[in-house]
Design a protein around this nucleic acid. Structure first.
Length: 419
DNA sequence: TCTGGGGTCCTAGGACCC
DNA sequence: TCTGGGGTCCTAGGACCC
């Protein structure tokens, strides 16, 4: 059996842990630049604030309903996630961390020795008492069905107490008939549209389609999903692998048309890519750089371009990455456009330890030492060391007007209690 | 004024190899 | 008239996920 454990309204719940007065109140968390709503408490969902809602369009609704609005605080959410996952790992040796707030647990052979409902409830209690985060658990013979079970556990929390088990053909059929086709894991907007056109409205009707048909219309991905949903375990637990790509992409606060400004932004993104690579101890060999205008401004000329550039050798040195990224930028930049967003994706990642030496080009060995020192200083001094290509006068101007403290990772931002 | 960011996988087509 | 068969690698685009 597989369990899917999902943190309820994760980002909103993290904010609540450190401010319990938010309990039972509507809470939303915004994306970078305070742009869109990316997490909502149940109370906020009840106000019909949709996922992805642009914040500026909902300002009035926030005010009228006393919605508590937060900028996203990834330092906090990442650390809380790590704590939750650590607790879950004590319940089974086989765990796949699927996302920041979700994990699959393989409970092989547990059924014979434990009551799975009680086991699930024990997990809920442990995570709640040790982190303050509420979770829901779905248990079933396959991953796709565990997802379905999780949805039921959450939707009928009053009945299920947060744990729901699907086992046996009858329960599977019942759960699948209840599940709307668009709510199935792996069925997104496009597939939903196509299936509805065929009058396939729920998951049960989907699993009754012929294999060949599903394979032809929805590729092997769809076919695997169909099998897994029908109870044949097809998707297995994956060891949480190292990342294959690492990206830093941001919309700008304004539109830029000046090459010098883009150069500064892209340099800063490349420096950040370097930090991320060093954190997971990887090198990269290929950088993809892209640039685009504001797609929401129909009145302006549109342009988007992207290019891949090889680094001279596998590297995680910010210096080399900046140089490579700027080569790419120069190739795709065109004058006369108002740019709104740029990004860099590092690809072809290799472990930093297994460096393939090149015959003619090689990293200056001083880079490695230098980067170590820079990372250390930036950690201690909260990001004070910058590179020449970055704007030294810039006080990081991403919009974060309602940021909570990094309660669990910074000494100077600990929660304060008055006695 | 204002509209996120970071991932994965699959397929098709082109360029290349022997 | 007629023009092989089997590969790999890369890229772009499109779908999906949270």
């Amino acid at each position: 059996m597989y369990a899917l454990v999902d943190c309820n309204n994760f980002y909103a719940s993290c904010e609540r842990v450190f401010d319990p007065s938010l309990e039972n109140k509507p809470v939303v968390v915004l994306s970078n630049n305070d742009g869109c709503v990316i997490a909502r408490s149940n109370e906020a969902k009840a106000l019909d604030i949709p996922m992805g809602a642009p914040a500026f369009q909902y300002e009035k609704i926030f005010e009228k309903n006393n919605v508590y609005v937060f900028s996203s605080n990834y330092a906090l959410y990442g650390d809380m996630s790590r704590r939750v996952m650590n607790i879950l790992s004590t319940f089974t040796p086989d765990i796949e961390i699927y996302s920041i707030d979700e994990a699959f647990l393989l409970l092989a052979g547990f059924k014979e020795h434990f009551d799975l409902t009680t086991y699930g409830q024990d997990m809920i209690k442990a995570v709640r008492s040790r982190t303050g985060i509420p979770i829901s658990i779905g248990i079933a013979p396959t991953k796709a069905l565990a997802k379905v079970a999780n949805k039921i556990a959450k939707k009928f929390a009053n009945h299920t107490g947060g744990v729901h088990i699907i086992d046996g053909p009858e329960k599977i059929r019942k759960a699948l008939s209840w599940t709307k086709i668009g709510d199935v894991w792996g069925i997104g907007r496009q597939y939903e549209k196509r299936l509805l056109a065929l009058n396939i409205k729920n998951a049960q009707q989907f699993v009754e389609l012929h294999d060949e048909y599903v394979r032809k219309e929805f590729s092997v991905v769809g076919l695997r999903l169909k099998r897994d949903l029908s109870g044949l375990s097809t998707l297995s637990l994956e060891a949480t692998p190292l990342k294959k790509n690492i990206a830093v992409t941001r919309a700008f606060e304004n539109m830029y048309s000046d090459y010098a400004e883009l150069k500064e932004r892209v340099s800063t993104y490349a420096v950040k890519i370097g930090e991320k690579l060093r954190r997971q101890d990887s090198n990269c060999s290929l950088l993809q750089v892209f640039l685009l205008t504001n797609p929401f401004r129909n009145d302006l000329k549109q342009y988007r371009a992207s290019i891949s550039v090889y680094t001279p050798h596998p590297t995680n040195s910010s210096i080399t990455l900046v140089k490579t990224a700027l080569t790419g930028l120069e190739m795709i930049y065109k004058e006369g456009f108002q740019y709104k967003k740029a990004g860099i994706i590092a690809m072809k990642l290799t472990p930093a330890k297994q460096k393939q030496f090149k015959l003619f080009t090689e990293e200056n060995p001083k880079h490695e030492q230098l980067m170590k020192v820079v990372d250390l200083l930036n950690f201690r001094e909260n990001g004070k060391v910058k590179f020449g290509g970055q704007d030294l006068g810039r006080t990081w101007k991403i919009k974060q007007e309602r940021l909570s403290n990094r309660f669990s990772t910074r000494m100077d931002e600990l929660i304060r209690i008055k006695i």
